[in-house]
Computed example of a mutant assay.
Amino acid sequence: MCPAVSFAYAGGLLATGLADVTTDLAALDSRGWWAVVVTYEGKVTCARFDTVRPARHPGGAWHAPGEWTSSLDESRYVAGVERIKASIADGIVYQANLCRVLSAPLAPGAGVAGLGARLARGNPAPYAMTLEVPGTAVACASPELYLRRDGEVVESRPIKGTGRTAADLLAKDEAENIMIVDLVRNDLGRVARTGSVTVPALCEVEPHPGLVHLVSTVRARTTAGWPELVAATFPPGSVTGAPKSSALRLLDELEPVPRGPYCGAIGWVDADTRRGALAVGIRTFWAEDGLLRFGTGAGITWASDPRSEWRETELKAARLLEVASGDAAQDLDERGAARP
C-alpha cells in the first residue's frame, strides 16, 4: 500500500491518493492524472493519483539544511568553461551548458512539502511542482517549459540568457538563444506533422524573482505519444547544448556527479484530457541519501567569459538557497513581496 504522505502539487492542484507508480512513459497515454519526474540521466517516475483538486500548497516541517558544498568549485568550473571554448574552436560543439550540483545535509524532520511551500511564497514560478512518492522527493520552482501538450499541439519555451535586469543581457545571450531554438525546432520536427513547426516568439525578455531571462516559443502539431515525444526531445536542448549529441559527450567528461532531476523533466500529465506540462528541471531541489541537492549552470559559447559564467551560476542559485535557508521565506509575504 502507498504511504499516506505521498502527494503532488502543481498549477494550484493538490493530488493525493497515490494509486500507481511506474517507470513506463506509455502510462501517460492511458488514463488518469500523473505527476512525472524524468532525471537528466533518464530515470522515469510516473505517479498516478486518484484525487486531484484545487488547493493551496500543503505545509510541512522545514529546517534550514547544513553547509552547502559544490560538485565543481570555481577553479574547476572555470577550467571546464575553457575546455568547452576549446571544443568550440575545434568545431566539436557550438554551445554547451556546464552545470554543478550543490549538496547540504538535510535537517532531521525536514520534508519537501515544507520546502515547496516556502518556494511557493518566496520564489513563485510558472512551472513549479512539489512531489513526494516512495523513492522520489522533489521541490521545483522552474520558470522554463520543456513540453506543454494540448491534444495534438505541443509547445516548448527554451530559456537562454540571464541577467539581474534586461540591461545585463548581452549579444551572446541572444545568439545562444537562437542556437537553442534551432535545436528545439529540429527535435520537435522528428515527431511533428510536416510543416507544423513554428516559432511564435523569439528572444522575449521575461521577468522572474531576482532576475530576467530571454525566452523563445517553439510550437508544433503531433500525433505521437508521450514516449515518442520525450525520446525525440530529451534531455531538453537548453540545458545540454548544440549539437546535442556532441555536447552530451563533452559534459559527461566535465561534470563529476549525475544531475538527477536537475535539468530533467518535472510536471504533470492528464491522460484523460490529453493535456500536460513538463518543466525543464531547473531551480530544483531534491532529497537523496540524507542530503538536499540543488543544481545550477550556465550556457557556454565562444564569447563566454569563464568567471562571468561562474557568477551566473551563483546568481541563479542565490535566491533559491536563501529561501531554502529559511531566512528569505520568513521575510516574505504571501505574494512573494519583500516585507518592509
Score class of each variant (00 low, 15 high):
4 A>V: 14
6 S>I: 11
22 T>R: 08
37 V>W: 08
40 Y>M: 01
49 F>S: 03
51 T>K: 13
51 T>M: 11
63 H>I: 14
63 H>L: 14
65 P>N: 08
66 G>E: 02
69 T>A: 11
71 S>P: 09
77 Y>G: 00
79 A>G: 10
86 A>F: 03
98 L>K: 05
103 S>A: 15
112 V>C: 03
112 V>Y: 03
113 A>I: 13
113 A>V: 12
114 G>F: 09
123 N>H: 15
130 T>C: 02
131 L>D: 06
132 E>F: 08
133 V>C: 07
134 P>W: 11
136 T>P: 08
137 A>P: 09
139 A>Q: 11
139 A>L: 09
141 A>L: 09
143 P>H: 01
144 E>P: 02
145 L>M: 11
151 G>W: 06
152 E>C: 12
152 E>W: 12
153 V>H: 11
159 I>G: 01
171 A>M: 12
172 K>V: 11
172 K>P: 02
184 V>P: 00
185 R>V: 02
191 V>F: 13
197 V>N: 05
197 V>Y: 05
200 P>V: 03
208 H>Y: 15
215 V>F: 04
215 V>H: 03
216 S>W: 06
218 V>Q: 02
220 A>D: 01
221 R>E: 13
222 T>M: 08
229 L>C: 07
229 L>D: 07
230 V>S: 01
230 V>N: 01
230 V>P: 00
237 G>V: 00
240 T>V: 12
242 A>S: 14
246 S>Q: 12
247 A>P: 04
252 D>F: 13
259 R>W: 04
261 P>K: 00
261 P>H: 02
263 C>E: 07
267 G>K: 09
268 W>T: 15
276 G>T: 08
276 G>Y: 09
277 A>P: 02
282 I>A: 11
283 R>N: 08
285 F>Y: 12
285 F>A: 10
291 L>R: 15
292 L>G: 02
294 F>A: 04
297 G>D: 01
299 G>F: 02
303 A>R: 05
304 S>N: 10
304 S>V: 05
309 E>M: 01
316 K>V: 00
321 L>H: 12
322 E>F: 06
331 D>Q: 14
334 E>L: 15
